[in-house]
């Protein structure tokens, strides 16, 4: 059975849990050599070890995506280890407590924008610079259904995901002829630790479920499959796209 990412070197940020972890595991099963990058080195190392235990190739990398030097070092470490960088999934992202826009806090704004927007930019910068020396690559930025729709109380998160979508499409046009494909992936509400920590009331979870015509939350594995498609050569004519896997939410 041929594997989609045989020998491809992939960097995944925010990879120690949730969607990022699902991507790391799936990509490793598909033959990739995975840099599991996360702000928690312990968690990154643990996942990388589990992947190796299961027969895959992975290393844990400490990486705070808000720090350009750390992102540059993560890419450099992959190049030093495996000689190249073929794909990246810029998945690191956070949420902050919900509140109407006039009741939000400045510190939360800065923290969220730094991770969700600046972090994606810094990641792309390091990845594109490396990929230009190789003649190509594939970048997947984790956007959101909230790149198209709004959610009351989540104005920072919504703004950050609109920003990710904008940067993604701009960069795709800029680097169109370089061989680097750059796409966004827009999940709906996905059953992840981030969501389960933020939304603890069962009635609130049910309300989130009901936003989706398919009337359920998505799984991290379902998003990982979409990320895999975008990263792989099956998507060779797809760039500047925002692939949406949201149970029909944004079709409403």
């Amino acid at each position: 059975m041929s594997r989609e990412l045989e020998n491809k070197v992939v960097l995944i940020t925010g990879a120690a849990s949730g969607i990022g972890a699902a991507c790391a595991e799936l990509f490793a099963r598909e033959g990739a050599r995975v840099g599991v990058a996360d702000v928690s080195l312990d968690a990154a190392d643990a996942l990388a070890a589990a992947i190796r235990e299961a027969g895959g190739e992975a290393i844990g990398i400490a990486c705070d995506v808000t720090r350009g030097a750390q992102v540059d070092a993560a890419v450099a470490q992959l190049v030093a280890t495996w000689g190249r960088l073929d794909c990246a999934v810029n998945n690191a992202g956070i949420t902050v407590p919900l509140a109407p826009i006039a009741e939000l806090e400045e510190a939360d704004y800065e923290r969220l924008m730094a991770v969700n927007v600046k972090g994606v930019w810094l990641s792309m910068r390091a990845e594109i610079r490396q990929m230009l020396t190789q003649g190509g690559g594939s970048i997947v930025n984790m956007a959101s259904a909230l790149s198209h729709k709004v959610h009351p109380g989540a104005s920072f998160y919504v703004a950050s995901k609109f920003a990710v979508a904008g940067m993604t499409r701009t960069a795709a046009v800029e680097y169109g002829e370089s061989g680097i494909r750059i796409n966004g992936l827009c999940p709906g509400n996905i059953r992840t630790p981030m969501l389960e920590n933020a939304v603890t009331d069962p009635a609130a979870v049910a309300a989130l479920q009901a936003l989706h015509p398919m009337n359920r939350l998505g799984t991290p594995g379902e998003i990982a499959q979409a990320a895999l498609w975008l990263a792989s050569d099956r998507a060779s004519f797809t760039t500047g796209a925002l692939l949406t896997a949201d149970g029909g939410w944004t079709a409403r």
């Binding site: 795709a172 015509p213 379902e222 499959q225 500047g240 949201d246 944004t250």
Partner: peptide, 25 residues
């Protein structure tokens, strides 16, 4: 193929561009 397959199990109502980036520019 991707949309037809079970790998796209959470995708519905999506407009999937295979456009070489033309709609982005």
């Amino acid at each position: 193929l991707f949309l037809a397959s079970d790998d796209a199990s959470f995708m519905t109502g999506h407009q999937m561009y295979v456009d070489g980036g033309v709609l982005a520019k």
